[in-house]
Design a protein around this nucleic acid. Structure first.
Lengths: 197, 197
DNA sequence: CCACAAAAGTAAACAGTGTTCACAAAAAAG
DNA sequence: CTTTTTTGTGAACACTGTTTACTTTTGTGG
């Protein structure tokens, strides 16, 4: 029966409504300051109905985070891996910062919004791992090319990750007024220069 | 009257009992999973009594964090600022990591435990600012000495902060098995090497 | 078209939360 | 020995995430 497909579509559409409502609220007021009752209200449901679509509040956030990681991953994958290391690094860094600027909501949910979760689970864990592995493989390739001289791979992976992460945090938290693409590029350039020499 | 002093002492002693009880619980179960009622029980009070000593739950965490920053600052200040840059940097870095290892509880409360606070206030804000300013002045001195070559001061301050922060996180989260002081030194060495060249 | 089963939605309740308030016990001051 | 101030409390308020029993809607096979 074709009804099954349409059913599924319909279900996903309703899930989306809930996700969108939750996302709006989480971003504006923070995970802890948003109740299931308010999510339900915003999505046009009764509180109990939400539990037909998500098993609990944390799962809603997980879902949103996963979507963020997925979008981020898609973007990072598109860079040409055959580029010479310097250019690849620059492109990837720029991509990272631009993502943080263009999708501040996703970025905030992914890295800033907190909900004291013990361990990542399911699809979220898988997707964020993919992102990290992609990053790692890129850094390893650059290290092997000798760009950073003779340096421990682990240290490079971690140092760059922490650096770019913090950079993005600075940018999105508004503690640094960057608006134009040129600003981003300059910031990136000075940081890369620092890391190299 | 001498009674006033003794009164004050007594009050502080009682505050301490509450702080200690809260700290134990926060560390073992996380801020969100500990209720005021449980803190009160552990401290031997009724829930309402806690509010005679702290105006709300967040303030208890703020107080604990502030104590952590204070202890951290004391430690960081003791390093000899007249040391040559390389050695100073190494000492400060080692101090940072050792603090994270020797006071994992404080460290966790200061940097990991989350409570969705909008802005730091009062003494906590002041103390953490002092810590940061101390760090900044050290890095600026090192940059001026030319150790990192021709590099933007801001970028250096931030890059190092992010790096050391992440490093400490790695260490304390147990994702890296470091036990001995020599391990710490080696880790630090490889990271510094990465940052320099 | 109708009976029936499955899905979607809900009101009400449960056990908990942070916080406040009116009030009682204790301590200090006069 | 009263009066005032401090210290502590039980009960309540307005919430929270989540579950349960129940009703309404929807899709399917006869």
């Amino acid at each position: 029966m074709n009804t099954k497909e349409r059913k599924e579509k319909e279900r996903e559409r309703k899930q989306r409504m809930i996700l969108d409502a939750a996302k709006n609220l989480f971003i504006r007021e923070g995970f802890d300051n948003v109740s299931m009752r308010r999510i339900a209200l915003a999505a046009g449901y009764s509180p109990a109905a939400i539990y037909r679509y998500f098993s609990n509040k944390r799962e809603i956030l997980s879902h949103l985070r996963e979507e963020g990681f997925r979008a981020f991953h898609v973007r990072q994958k598109q860079y040409d891996q055959s580029l010479e290391p310097v250019k690849l690094l620059r492109q990837a860094g720029r991509g990272y910062l631009r993502f943080a600027m263009e999708h501040p909501d996703d970025f905030h949910l992914m890295f800033c919004t907190t909900c004291e979760e013990v361990d990542l689970e399911g699809e979220l864990a898988a997707e964020s791992l993919r992102v990290f592995e992609h990053f790692r493989s890129m850094v390893v390739r650059i290290v092997k090319s000798g760009y950073f001289g003779d340096v421990d791979e682990e240290a490079a992976v971690f140092g760059l990750w922490a650096g770019v992460q913090g950079l993005a945090n600075l940018v999105t938290s508004g503690r640094m007024q960057v608006l134009s693409d040129r600003d981003v590029d300059e910031l990136l350039e000075s940081t890369l220069n620092f890391l190299r020499r």
